[in-house]
Simulated scan of single mutants.
Amino acid sequence: MTHPVVSEIPTGPVPVPPAVARLADADTITPVWRNELGGLTFRLDGRESTRYAKWVAAGTPEIDLPAEAERLKWARRWAAVPRVVGHGSDAEGAWLVTAAVPGRSAVDPRWLADGATAAAAIGHGLRVLHDALPVDGCPFDWSVERRLRRADERIADGEGPADRFPEHRDLSLAEARARIGDPPPIDRLVVCHGDACAPNTLLHDGGTFAAHVDLGSLGVADRWADLAVAAWSMEWNFGPGYDGAVYDAYGVAPDQERIAYYRLLWDMA
Rank of each mutant, 00 (worst) to 15 (best):
residue 114 D to C: 02
residue 146 R to D: 14
residue 85 V to L: 15
residue 132 A to T: 08
residue 13 P to R: 13
residue 64 D to I: 01
residue 29 I to S: 04
residue 268 M to N: 01
residue 264 L to T: 02
residue 31 P to R: 07
residue 156 A to N: 09
residue 215 L to V: 08
residue 14 V to F: 12
residue 233 S to I: 07
residue 117 T to Y: 08
residue 75 A to C: 13
residue 136 D to L: 09
residue 39 G to P: 13
residue 180 I to F: 12
residue 14 V to M: 04
residue 176 A to N: 10
residue 46 G to A: 11
residue 251 G to I: 05
residue 105 S to G: 09
residue 257 E to S: 09
residue 60 T to H: 08
residue 151 A to G: 13
residue 80 A to G: 00
residue 147 R to Y: 08
residue 222 D to S: 03
residue 137 G to S: 02
residue 38 G to P: 03
residue 103 G to F: 06
residue 155 I to M: 15
residue 175 E to F: 11
residue 159 E to V: 06
residue 254 P to G: 05
residue 67 A to L: 12
residue 86 G to N: 04
residue 49 S to M: 09
residue 43 R to V: 06
residue 25 D to Y: 01
residue 160 G to L: 14
residue 151 A to H: 10
residue 229 V to G: 08
residue 187 D to C: 04
residue 171 L to Y: 12
residue 29 I to W: 08
residue 178 A to S: 15
residue 60 T to L: 12
residue 16 V to M: 03
residue 36 E to D: 11
residue 51 R to S: 11
residue 249 A to G: 03
residue 242 Y to T: 01
residue 45 D to C: 08
residue 112 L to Y: 07
residue 118 A to N: 04
residue 80 A to Q: 09
residue 205 D to Y: 03
residue 54 K to C: 04
residue 223 R to N: 10
residue 33 W to F: 13
residue 157 D to K: 15
residue 198 A to T: 06
residue 102 P to Q: 03
residue 177 R to Q: 15
residue 265 L to A: 07
residue 26 A to I: 10
residue 143 S to T: 11
residue 154 R to W: 11
residue 124 H to F: 03
residue 21 A to W: 05
residue 6 V to K: 14
residue 71 R to L: 05
residue 101 V to F: 00
residue 108 D to M: 06
residue 131 D to G: 08
residue 86 G to I: 06
residue 49 S to E: 15
residue 230 A to K: 03
residue 114 D to K: 10
residue 160 G to F: 14
residue 10 P to W: 11
residue 116 A to T: 14
residue 96 L to Q: 00
residue 252 V to E: 15
residue 262 Y to D: 02
residue 61 P to F: 13
residue 213 V to T: 05
residue 253 A to F: 08
residue 29 I to H: 07
residue 234 M to Q: 06
